[in-house]
Design a protein around this nucleic acid. Structure first.
Lengths: 141, 141
DNA sequence: CTGCATGCAAATAGTTTGCAGTAGC
DNA sequence: GCTACTGCAAACTATTTGCATGCAG
């Protein structure tokens, strides 16, 4: 394995992930850090996120756009189909499932992802108020 | 909603999905159909896969590369971290889970994805035979 | 010093889209 | 004949990579 070396950028990026529950994309991390670090480059953000995930410090989530999570304990996620935001759910992770699947197949199971899809509260509210607007316009027209 | 019209290409693409359990990517579908349909274009494949998924005839799976599945009944998947292949698992889908999460949150849940990650039999075998080669070389050297 | 890490820009992969021509209904 | 659908190519988004330089150990 390659000998890692300290870097201010890597620390910044990792702290950024530790300080949020938003499961950000590489681009989000870049945009958050840019104002205070005008020389930071996208390449560095991508490289370090990938590296931290390989080292097990971050979880990598293959949504249409790659997202990262500093919580390395497995847990379940919710993804809003309307705004794309990803959040954590309280539902406990069941490691027994992995063993069950491994036993009944020829496969070596490392972990599983459980992701719920639907609409988040914000988007439900937004949709409702849009509909109200529309019916108002109809009444006015 | 837009009035759909029959198209030979769309039928080809849909049949292609019905006839496989491989959860192919758009590119795979394109390459399979190309020999018999030299005029087919990637754009058409992408457009129709997206359209069929919107109509509920296909499942769209957001792996690092978008994959599609003609089985619209929810079921669990296995993804090999080594070769990237995606296959079905016997594990039953539990709709009760969706209701449980919906009740304990402010969220509207539509479905959930359960995906197991690990190594498939082929890749385990490949890894083992590679290791044997290496130790052989050591002994020879 | 050594060589890992960075910034930058170019390259790549996957996917979408604009447009002119084709073909269902 | 109307207009959805196609092929083609260009555009776009997300991500990776090559290279010269910077900096940790």
């Amino acid at each position: 394995m390659i000998q890692r070396r300290y870097s201010r950028q890597r620390e910044l990026i990792y702290n950024c992930l530790l300080g949020t529950k938003e499961h950000p994309t590489a681009e989000m991390v870049y945009q958050w850090l840019l104002p205070e670090n005008p020389n930071l480059s996208r390449g560095t953000v991508y490289r370090n996120l990938k590296l931290l995930a390989e080292e097990g410090l971050l979880l990598r989530m293959p949504f249409p756009v790659e997202r990262y999570d500093a919580c390395t304990e497995q847990h379940t996620h919710f993804c809003c189909r309307s705004c794309g935001a990803v959040s954590d759910l309280e539902l406990e992770y069941d490691p027994e499932l992995d063993q069950r699947v491994a036993r009944s197949s020829q496969l070596e199971i490392q972990w599983h992802d459980l992701v719920f899809y639907g609409t988040c509260k914000e988007c439900i509210d937004k949709k409702n108020s849009n509909q109200e607007e529309h019916s108002l316009q109809k009444e006015e027209g």
